[in-house]
Amino acid sequence: MSAADTEALMRQRLASLEPEAVEIADESALHAGHAGARAGGGHYQLTIVSKHFAGLDALSRHRLVYQALGGLMGSRIHALSIQAYAPGEL
């Protein structure tokens, strides 16, 4: 499996949030040799803008992202840093 495949899968899953923008940065190289990296999961930084985040606190926004990603968390994704915005917040 390649990092590009994982990013494509992330985008597919995140489509359920009808995002206006999704940016995914693969930071796996920064963590090479780390136990999680050896196990095959990547480190990603996600910035996402969605109307579904409007009126929600950060905890609830991150939960929506984790729910959308589902089983990717802990398998293809070892670590994920999330910045979740509602439209107009950026």
Binding site: L59, H62, S81, Q83
Partner: peptide
Amino acid sequence: QFIGGSDIMREM
């Protein structure tokens, strides 16, 4: 009470 992970800690 669960507060969050490191991203949320940084925001707060």
